[in-house]
Computed example of a mutant assay.
Amino acid sequence: MGQAFFIQLFASGVAVALLVGLAAWARIARPTGPLDDARARALLEDEFPGRRLDAIWVASDGQGALAKSGGLALVICRLGDGYVARQIPWAQALQASFRHGRLCVDLADVAAPKAFLNLPAWPPKDLAA
C-alpha cells in the first residue's frame, strides 16, 4: 500500500465527514415529532389559508389529523418524513371505513391514496353533518 492509497483514503474520509455534517446542519431526513392539536391546527392553516376550522380530531398516535371546515374535510397525514394535506367532501369523510380504532379515508390521489388515522370513535357524535 503506497502513499497514494492513504491520501485517497484520508480524502474520502474527509468528504464523508463533510457530507454528514452538511446533512446534520441542513436537518435532512430528521424525523418529525407526533402531531398535537396546536401543531395540526398550524399545519392545516398553513396548507389551507383562510379556511375556518369548525372542529379538529388528531390521531391518537399523532400521525395525522382530520378537520371539518364547512362542507369540507381537511385531512393531514404522515407520508415519508413529512405530512401531506388534502381536502375531500365532509360526507365522504363521514362515510370512511372505521374498524378497530382506525379510520381509513380514501383520498383518491395517486400521491397519497389513503389516509389512516387512529381515532377513538368515528363519526363524531357531537357534530352535525
Rank of each mutant, 00 (worst) to 15 (best):
R86W: 11
L127V: 14
L103P: 03
F116Q: 15
R99Q: 12
F48Y: 15
A91S: 15
L19F: 11
A24F: 13
I28E: 11
R86Y: 05
A65D: 04
S60M: 11
L72G: 01
N118G: 04
G80C: 09
D36C: 09
G80F: 01
V110Q: 13
I7R: 14
A111V: 06
L107Y: 02
A4W: 04
A115D: 05
G64H: 03
L22P: 00
R52L: 12
V14K: 03
V58F: 02
L66P: 01
D126K: 15
A23P: 00
R86D: 02
W122H: 05
L66I: 15
H100F: 07
D36H: 08
E45K: 14
L66A: 13
N118P: 00
K125E: 11
P89F: 06
A38D: 10
V58I: 14
A85F: 00
P49G: 09
W25T: 12
I28F: 10
A29P: 00
L66V: 15
P123H: 06
D106Q: 14
R30E: 14
S12Q: 12
P34T: 05
K68F: 08
D61I: 02
V16T: 10
V20T: 14
A4C: 01
P31C: 01
D109E: 06
G101S: 08
L79I: 09
L19G: 13
K125L: 14
G101W: 01
A40E: 03
G62P: 02
L119S: 12
D106V: 14
R99C: 03
G82D: 15
P123E: 04
Q63I: 01
A111I: 02
C104Y: 00
I7Y: 06
A59W: 01
L35F: 04
L43H: 12
R39Y: 04
W57E: 07
F10I: 13
L44S: 06
A26L: 10
K68N: 01
D61A: 11
G13P: 01
A24C: 08
A85D: 01
A29D: 11
A29H: 09
L22H: 10
R39N: 07
D54Y: 06
F48S: 08
F5T: 12
G70C: 03
R30Y: 05
L35S: 11
L94K: 11
I7C: 05
R27I: 00
A121M: 08
S12G: 11
L127R: 14
Q87P: 00
V105K: 09
